[in-house]
């Protein structure tokens, strides 16, 4: 006990001073909550901090965790900006009035499909759902017009999906909106009956398609784009975007918003504006192989232009309805 007391003293002494955040509130500061990984966006944020001379503090976490944290913090949040991995989380915060309206000068830089209808968040980069296929075993014309056609006997045991993946779940949410609950349920059951193969994640599916273990996989476009950039044009996996507003071609976005009551509101807007600049959009196209959404920047080579992908009739903010999707996946035994 006597030995422990000085330790306790040290504990208190060491723990207290490191806590003075936000009290000074001077300009040139910005607190960002990032649901995107440090590995992917860290270099870009550092570049912004250096160029603009802003002292940025970034809290990294998963998008759901950060959305939950913002909900608990309420109007006492130290955060100025939320940089989210997907539109659903932004939609759920918008519904709770936790986001500040963005100026039209920022909103108008992005196609209206990829921003909040209410104007309080904006998409920064696009993430398209695709049908990845093995080019040696399948010719593109043989693929079904819609992912709904993958329940045919031709595709038995030949398709891979990752039911616990967040992007897959967003796709199923979109499916529920376009086909209705019962339509989505029927498709999921038929896919399961067709022995659709389960994988841990998108990378595992892509590699299985490349190896020919399966012929077709439901994943996000950039996994293929990354591998193609590394392996060269002979990479055996092709990308197919089902036409006609198919849910299998859903384009979700990573987006950003200013937190309601943010202390550094101007800096926050300035930062979001930077994310839509030519420099940042190029970074996304080159580094993460996502679709740039602004400044006329072209996507990575080999990708279908965004304008030729017809978005299904789904409001991205509605993708917040994840609970219903998880319930459905569980009911059908997919999860």
């Amino acid at each position: 006990m006597r030995k422990l007391l000085p330790i306790l003293g040290m504990v208190v002494a060491a723990a207290l001073p490191g806590c003075g955040f936000g009290a000074d509130g001077g300009s040139g500061e910005l607190t960002i909550y990032s649901g995107r990984e440090q590995d992917l966006v860290g270099p870009l944020l550092d570049r912004y901090a250096k160029e603009e001379g802003v002292d940025i503090k970034v809290r990294y976490g998963t998008t759901p965790e950060i959305a939950a944290t913002l909900n608990e913090e309420g109007d006492r949040s130290p955060a100025d900006v939320f940089f989210s991995q997907d539109a659903g989380a932004l939609g759920s915060l918008q519904a709770k009035g936790r986001l500040e309206l963005l100026p039209t000068a920022i909103l108008d830089r992005v196609d209206s499909r990829f921003r909040s209808p209410q104007g309080d968040w904006v998409g920064v980069s696009g993430r398209a759902r695709v049908v990845a296929y093995n080019r040696e075993r399948v010719r593109e014309p043989d693929l079904p017009r819609s992912v709904l056609g993958l329940t045919a006997p031709r595709w038995k045991s030949k398709v891979g999906w990752a039911p616990t993946n967040a992007s897959f779940e967003s796709f199923v949410t979109a499916l529920r909106k376009t086909e209705g609950e019962s339509g989505a349920e029927r498709w999921l059951r038929a896919m399961k009956a067709n022995d659709t193969q389960v994988y841990e994640n998108n990378v595992a599916i892509r590699d299985a398609v490349a190896k020919g273990e399966i012929e077709v996989g439901l994943i996000n476009h950039y996994y293929v784009a990354e591998a193609r950039a590394q392996e060269g044009p002979d990479y055996p996996v092709g990308i197919y975007e089902p036409p006609g507003g198919d849910p299998g071609a859903l384009v979700n976005v990573a987006g950003a918003a200013v937190i309601a009551g943010a202390e550094h509101e101007d800096a926050a807007r300035d930062f979001i504006s930077f994310l839509l600049s030519r420099e940042a959009q190029r970074y996304f196209a080159e580094r993460t192989k996502e679709y740039p959404l602004a400044a006329g920047v072209k996507p990575a080579p080999g990708l279908v232009p965004l304008s030729s992908i017809r978005q299904p009739d789904v409001d991205l903010a509605d993708l917040a309805d994840l609970q219903g999707t998880v319930d459905l996946l569980e009911r059908t035994g997919v999860l």
Binding site: T62, P64, A67, A68, N71, G88, L335
Partner: peptide
């Protein structure tokens, strides 16, 4: 390991804003 337990559902619920 994809075992649908309590904690996993609690996480999902928090993530979708249904605190």
């Amino acid at each position: 390991l994809r075992f649908d337990s309590f904690t996993r559902v609690i996480y999902t619920a928090y993530g979708t804003g249904s605190r």
